[in-house]
Design a protein around this nucleic acid. Structure first.
Length: 518
RNA sequence: GACCCCGUAGCUCAAUGGCAGAGCACCGGACUUUUAAUCCGUUGGUUCUCGGUUCGAGUCCGAGCGGGGUCACCA
């Protein structure tokens, strides 16, 4: 034990002295165990039972444990609120019931934010609030930091993200968002498990990345002396499992993309992907709708909700409209008639689009979608059938080999899901990878590298398969009505603060240090 | 990466270029059914950092750090 102390503020010193006062009384401010045998929510139930004539309920002695979130000192009596994982309840503390010393210490040594346990019986105060009449209490964890201001909570956005624990203590609505997120994920697992899907885990560290158009993070393995990429998608590994004979697989996991950060993009984000053998994108569309509907039921208990001030109804079957029709209806442009990028840009500008000269053809189509169609897709809508250039892993439509069987689901103006009838012709797949290679060599950093092993897998035969990726963060944003992805990610990526520890990203130094420990 | 905005007490926020303040929290006192308890009295500051202009800078100027927003990239 050392006498050394971290730098503490005056307020922290005050609390530390209270901690010392407890020790001076032979009490441990951080005991190993609590004696909790009830939850805050039990109190209201006991009060109601007692009022219905249950004498045992009125006398039932409970020990609750949790955080002190308010204290009102009335002189010879005091009120406090105790919060635990279920809710919060009022404590009623009387000097004549607790004894002089214990009562004084409650007011003198217990601060807002401390974790305590309190024992007593349940009753209703004059103002009608179910409360615990405290006969004894104990410190479980002395808090040295004071909680944020009780009325305004924690407002500073930076501190809310960097120190989410404070945000969660201070802001009930933040706790609600992440509880909702957990219910959404749980409902998704239930839905897929119920259909006989198995949940699998595929590599995060990949020698070759693929499955999406994005730039990866790069890392290095010491023993192998080899570069690994953090995965940008699960797709190619999950389809290998379909080849292997698992007919229904899904994975809920973090993907990592080395792109800009904004309200819709986080460098690490959670993706659900599922693949079903002997299915196509129509079956997957049905599954996606049912999955989103069951997630909604778990999230807010219904199929209608408000997002960004707009009422959205998820019930019924959702309309499907081809990308070409949607763009034509919104802009009057039939992009199929303009196979040359320059021509398409010209008509797009005439229609009012803002597109840079030199944009490649598939990106122009994408811009038409973004600028004319997407803002109006509030009610759930499947946009189907995309140009083949935008979709190197999807199967062509027999009647129209320039397009593939692919859908994107839009709700509230946001893209929530991306799906295709999976390409299973190994030679066609190999050629599409080659085209991506050409794009890479032409300078498109997002084009996919050629995955020989994936082509080899397809050569063993992959059944006709439908698959989809669904962004869990965006689904949560939609259902929880949150405007930025950081508000549905517990610990969003932030820039490092400590400038003195910054060392020009010298990986070898840290690698050696870690290796020496092993 | 570019542009715009922001950074003041533990928290929430004020302060024409002229003594750095309030509410909550904290500390002391009064009060045996309060609930944003109330009442009385205190305490608390590297105004993000460094430099400049000025008799005088929280305020104006420059650079940096961090955050937010818009755009670009992307899902």
């Amino acid at each position: 034990m050392t006498e050394e102390l971290p730098d503490l503020s005056e307020l922290q010193h005050v609390r530390l002295e209270k901690s010392a006062a407890l020790r001076a009384q032979g009490l441990n401010p951080y005991p190993l165990r609590s004696h909790r045998d009830g939850m805050t929510t039990d109190v209201a139930a006991l009060v109601e039972a007692a009022e219905a004539g249950d004498a045992a309920a009125a006398e039932k002695v409970l020990t609750l444990a949790g955080r002190v979130v308010s204290v009102r000192d009335m002189g010879k009596t005091a009120f406090a609120h105790l919060r635990d994982g279920e809710g919060q309840v009022q404590l009623y503390v009387r000097r004549d019931e607790l004894g002089e010393q214990a009562f004084e210490d409650f007011l003198r040594l217990v601060d807002l934010g401390d974790i305590i346990e309190a024992t007593g019986t349940s009753f209703r105060t004059r103002t009608g609030e179910p409360s615990l009449r405290v006969s004894g209490y104990g410190m479980l964890a002395k808090a040295l930091n004071a909680p944020p201001e009780k009325w305004h909570g924690l407002q500073d956005v930076e501190q809310r993200y960097r120190q989410r624990y404070v945000d969660l203590i201070a802001n009930a609505e933040v706790r609600d968002v992440f509880r909702m997120r957990a219910r959404i994920v749980s409902a998704i697992r239930q839905y897929l498990d119920g259909l006989g899907y198995i949940e699998v885990e595929t590599p995060v560290l990949q020698p070759l990345y693929g499955g999406a158009a994005a730039r990866p993070f790069t890392t290095h393995h010491n023993a192998l002396d080899q570069i690994f990429y953090l995965r940008i998608a699960d797709e190619l590994y999950l389809k290998r499992l379909i080849v292997g004979g698992f007919e229904r697989v899904y994975e809920i996991s973090k993907d990592f993309r080395n792109e800009g950060i904004d309200r819709n993009h986080s460098p690490e984000f959670t993706m659900l992907e599922f693949y079903e053998a002997f299915a196509d994108y129509n079956i997957v569309a049905d599954r996606t709708r049912e999955l989103v509907q069951s997630a909604a039921a778990a999230a807010f208990g219904g199929l209608t909700f408000t997002s960004n001030g707009r009422e959205i109804d998820l019930s019924g079957v959702w309309p499907k409209i081809t990308l070409a029709d949607a763009i034509f209806e919104a802009s009057g442009i039939d992009y199929v008639k303009y196979p040359d990028a320059a021509d398409l840009i010209a008509v797009a500008r005439k229609a009012g689009a803002d597109i840079e000269t030199g944009t490649v053809w598939p990106r122009v189509v994408d811009e038409l979608l973004k600028q004319f169609v997407r803002p109006n897709l509030i009610e759930p809508t499947f946009l189907i059938n995309y140009p083949v250039q935008l979709s190197p892993l999807a199967k062509r439509i027999p009647d129209d080999p320039t397009h593939v069987e692919r859908f994107q689901l839009y709700i509230g103006g946001s893209e929530l899901a991306n799906s295709f009838t999976e390409l299973n012709d190994p030679i066609d797949q190999w050629r599409r990878f080659r085209e991506q290679q050409a794009d890479r060599e032409a300078g498109d950093a997002d084009a996919m590298p050629l995955d020989e092993d994936f082509v080899n897998a397809l050569m063993y035969g992959m059944p006709p398969t439908g698959g989809v990726g669904i962004g869990i963060d965006r689904l949560t944003m939609l259902f929880a009505d949150q405007a930025t992805i950081r508000d549905v990610v517990l610990f969003p990526a932030m820039r490092r603060i400590d400038r003195s520890s910054r060392q020009d990203d010298d990986d070898s130094t840290t690698d050696d240090a870690e290796g020496a420990l092993e």
